[in-house]
């Protein structure tokens, strides 16, 4: 993965495959704490404590198509090499929350990258899931909720060119409007 937004797409795909009906993504950038946090939570099948612990182990997976899991361990590696870590909280039948954080100014921190494209791909992958994306930059917030899309686009599918283009533009404008992070430490 070259971008954090690709990790986000991967985490959201875990939610989809875990039977989620709603998925919430939060990205929080804080210059004072020099921290970038990413949290992905769902109301899917969840895992027991032992499975949640093993979820960060690259050689653990419930899939049958491949013998290694990889997704979460890759995200954990990206966080740990930038002075951060990843936590997995899960309860069977209630859902799972994956939280990762890292030093915002760390030289090895991957760029956030193309978040709108990640959201387009996530919504295309599971059009019936209620999807929320929340982004904060030094306290300024942008929130997108897929119910907006449903309400306005109705039965037009998200893969319709006009809808995908609108969504991309809407998200780029919202996230762009958050402005840049203040210089770290000021």
């Amino acid at each position: 993965m070259r971008e954090l937004s690709e990790h986000i797409l991967d985490l959201v795909y875990n939610c989809i495959e875990g039977g989620a009906r709603s998925v919430r993504v939060a990205v929080i950038e804080d210059s004072r704490a020099d921290r970038l946090s990413i949290r992905v939570s769902d109301d899917g099948r969840g895992m027991d404590e032992a499975a949640a612990r093993r979820a960060l182990d690259p050689f653990y997976t419930t899939r049958t198509t491949r013998r290694v899991g990889l997704g979460l361990p890759l995200f954990a590696a990206a966080a740990r090499r930038c002075g951060g870590d990843v936590e997995v909280c899960s309860r069977p039948g209630e859902g799972t929350t994956v939280s990762g954080w890292m030093r915002h100014s760390h030289i090895d921190r991957q760029p956030l990258g193309n978040v709108p494209e990640t959201i387009v791909a996530a919504i295309l992958s599971a059009p019936d899931i209620a999807f929320e994306y929340h982004h904060e930059v030094d306290g300024r917030c942008f929130t997108f909720n897929s119910s907006l899309l449903k309400e306005a686009a109705g039965d037009l599918p998200p893969s319709h060119p006009a809808v995908a283009q609108w969504l991309r533009a809407h998200l780029a404008e919202g996230i762009g409007g958050l402005g840049r992070l203040q210089a770290i430490g000021h």
Binding site: Y13, T65, V120, S125, S159, A164
Partner: peptide
Amino acid sequence: REVMRAVLDELARQEIEVQVTTVGCIG
């Protein structure tokens, strides 16, 4: 993700209507 973007762009450019979806790891 970039392949999917290219698919959506090309379908829009050629004004073709098809369902676009995704699948997880198939091995």
